[in-house]
Amino acid sequence: MRGYVMAAAALNRTQERKANTSNGGFMLLLSLVILAALIWMVLDLIRYENGINGLGTVVLSIVFVLQLCGFYTLQPNEGAAVTLFGNYKGTDRTPGLRWMLPWYTRKKVSLRVRNVTGEKLKVNDKRGNPIEIAAVVVWRVTDTAQALFDVDQYQTFVDIQIETAVREIASHFSYDHSEHDEPTLRGDADQVSTLLREKLQERVSVAGVVVDETKLSHLAYAPEIASAMLRRQQAEAVLSARRFIVQGAVEMVEHALQQLSERDVVQLDDERRATMVSNLLVVLCGDRDAQPVVNAGSLYQ
C-alpha cells in the first residue's frame, strides 16, 4: 500500500522547467522611449487638440502602464515560479531586473540554505525509556515547482516531517546502554545523524527539498527518570572502576608472588600464600589506607 501511494505521488509530481522571461534592462530602456513618445503626444494634443493624437495617447498610456506592471526583480539564490491562470509555465532563476507579460503571475521562492532548530520532543527510546530529543536540520529548496505545487505550505510540511523523522529515529536506538553492542543515541551521534538525514530526505523529497545536514542538538532523559538514571550511571561507573582496580590488583599480586619465587626470597606454603594474597588484595582494593600490624613473633605465631 505504501509503495502504491509513493508511486502515485511520483506520477503527480511537478517538474521545474525554465520560464521564458526578458531582460529587464532592455525593457526599461524601451519604457523610457514609450514615455518620451507619450509626453510628446500629450504636448502635441494640448497644442493642436488633434483627435488622432488623443486616441494614440490613450493607447500608448495603456501600453506604458502594462509594461510597467511586467517588471520584477530577483535576488541571488531566489526563484520566481510563473503561472498563467493557474497553469505552471516555468521558473525564472536569473537575478536582477526581469520583465514578462503582466498577466502572468509570479511567486517568489527563496533558494537559500535554511536552518531549523526543532523543538524538544518527549519520546521513548528503543528500551522504552522516556527521553527528550531535538535536532538541527539544514535544508534548501531545489525544485520550486514541487515546493509550491506538490505540497501545501512546504515550510510547514518540512517542519512536520522533521518532527516525525526524529521520533522514528529515537525509537530505533537506546539512549546510552545496549545489551548487544548496538549503536546508541549518545555514543553514536554521527551514525544517528546520518540515518536521520536519510530518513528525512525520503520524506521531504516530494517537496523538492534537499537536506544538507542533520545534528542532534539536545539529548537527555525525561525529568521523571533523570535522577534514577543518574544513579544507575554512577553505579555503572563505580562497578567499572572496581573491576579495573581488581584486575590491576590481581596482576600486581601475581607479579609479586612470581618475583618472590624466582628470587628465592621466602618459601611459602599454600596456606601462607593464600593469606598473603588476601592481605595484598585487601590493601590494593580497599577504599582506605591500610593500617600496618607489626608481628613481634614468628611468621607462624
Rank of each mutant, 00 (worst) to 15 (best):
S171E: 11
R231N: 03
T275V: 04
S178N: 11
A274L: 08
V204R: 08
D212F: 05
E202Q: 13
P183M: 02
L268Y: 06
R243T: 12
Q234D: 14
Q267L: 10
L195N: 07
D190M: 10
L195D: 13
L196I: 05
S240I: 05
R186S: 09
I162V: 04
I160D: 11
R232N: 03
D269K: 05
T194R: 15
H218S: 05
E254K: 00
D176Q: 06
S171W: 00
R243H: 09
Q258N: 09
I169C: 04
D212W: 13
R273F: 08
V211E: 07
V211Q: 08
D264E: 10
D159F: 13
D269E: 04
Y221D: 07
A222G: 14
S278H: 13
T214F: 11
D159R: 12
Q258Y: 04
Q258H: 08
V210Q: 08
L185H: 01
V204M: 13
E254F: 09
E168S: 14
A222S: 15
V266D: 11
A249V: 03
R272E: 12
V206T: 02
R242K: 11
Q161M: 04
T194Q: 09
D181H: 11
G208M: 05
V192W: 07
V246Y: 14
Q234K: 10
D212T: 02
Q234H: 09
S174P: 04
K199R: 12
A207N: 06
R272L: 13
D176Y: 02
I160T: 15
Q259S: 08
H177F: 15
Q234V: 07
V192I: 05
F173T: 10
R273T: 15
L196N: 11
A237C: 01
A222Q: 06
S174C: 09
Q161H: 05
R242V: 14
A207Y: 08
V265I: 13
E213G: 01
A237E: 03
P183H: 01
R203K: 10
V209I: 14
A170P: 01
M252T: 13
E163R: 11
E179M: 04
H172N: 06
D270F: 06
A222C: 15
L200T: 06
L268V: 15
V206C: 04
P223E: 12
R186Y: 14
Q201K: 11
R186F: 14
A241T: 15
Q201C: 13
A256N: 03
L257H: 08
A235P: 00
V166K: 04
I245S: 02
V209H: 01
V211N: 06
Y175R: 00
G248N: 14
D212N: 11
A249N: 02
L219H: 01
F244E: 05
S240R: 13
A165V: 07
R167I: 00
V266P: 03
L200E: 08
L195S: 13
Q201A: 15
E213V: 02
S205A: 15
E262L: 12
L216N: 01
L268T: 12
V206E: 00
T194S: 11
P183R: 12
R242M: 09
A274R: 04
S178M: 06
D176A: 11
L239V: 13
H255V: 07
A274W: 06
V166F: 05
G208C: 05
A235R: 08
G208N: 02
E236M: 14
S205Y: 10
S227G: 06
V246Q: 14
A274T: 12
M229T: 00
